[in-house]
């Protein structure tokens, strides 16, 4: 039973004008078996939260805690966090020219599993995972994400998810830029990952359409660098109808108070 606990997390970025606080006290607990959706306006800090948990060097943690099964994640290097069982499907996956997808996947699996997977079973495993996500085998020989379309990049993020089998997966707008069929394929991939293990999912999205495929247990509204409201799946529908006005107001209130 894995648990990701985020307690009063605060983070800032360095800008030309000095440090800018983006996360202003995030509290969230994701337990194995749960799916949490985070919705919120552009620029509210959702990706920052995801990156801060993953350990992106751009963000400075100024307060709070992140614990994975009681272990202090913030003290770990980026790769240690991944090996501890965290995974971030990025909103903008990075292109790595010259490194083939096949080589990358194998290096990642070797690192996360602690030993190189047996070649024969590995080839089958990758092929199966690619087939399941309707990814053509020729992608294996292409450079990581290089020249991939937006949707192809997102499929490959889920491919990595399915091969690395983390304890907790954070999906940052994995649904953005996907056509209707791709959305179904990718959602099924996430659901298979979820069903196969005792794992938690934190899903950042702007659209309720993915929540028709992946049912969240909790929906959080994120505004002004923190969670301002939490509720059931019906909260997503309400957001779709009414927008974030009500909550950005609340967030502005926080800003004034701080």
């Amino acid at each position: 039973m894995s648990t990701l606990e985020i307690k009063d997390l605060r983070a800032s970025v360095t800008t030309d004008a000095g440090a800018k606080e983006i996360l202003r006290g995030v509290d969230l607990t994701v337990r194995a078996g749960e799916t949490h959706a985070i919705m919120g306006p552009n620029g509210s800090g959702k990706s920052t939260l995801a990156y801060a948990i993953a350990g992106h060097p751009k963000y400075e943690i100024t307060g709070g805690e992140v614990l994975l099964d009681g272990e202090n994640v913030l003290e770990m290097s980026v790769d240690e966090r991944a090996r501890a069982g965290l995974f971030l499907a990025m909103q903008y996956p990075v292109e790595v020219p010259g490194v083939s997808m096949a080589n990358f996947l194998r290096s990642a699996a070797t690192a996360v599993r602690g030993e190189a997977p047996k070649l024969r079973t590995w080839v089958k495993e990758v092929k199966g995972a690619m087939d399941a996500l309707e990814i053509d085998q020729t992608f294996a020989e292409r450079s990581v994400n290089e020249g991939f379309s937006g949707g192809e990049k997102k499929r490959h993020e889920v491919l990595q998810l399915s091969l690395l089998k983390p304890k907790v997966a954070i999906l940052d707008e994995t649904d953005s830029g996907l056509d209707v069929d791709a959305l179904r394929v990718v959602s099924e991939g996430v659901n298979r990952y979820k069903a196969a293990g005792d794992v938690g999912v934190l899903l950042i999205t702007h659209y309720t359409r993915i929540l028709k495929h992946i049912t969240p247990d909790v929906v959080h509204v994120f505004a002004g660098g923190r969670i301002v409201e939490s509720g059931g799946a019906e909260l997503a529908d309400e957001l779709e109808t009414n927008g974030y006005v009500k909550f950005t107001g609340a967030a502005a209130g926080v800003e004034v108070a701080s």
Partner: peptide, 21 residues
């Protein structure tokens, strides 16, 4: 960051990139 976020240690990640280059 991307390579490390998949568990690949920094030295291995650097080597992957230079080898690719």
């Amino acid at each position: 960051f991307y390579l490390q976020s998949r568990g690949i240690p920094e030295d291995v990640a650097r080597r992957l990139v230079v080898r690719g280059f």
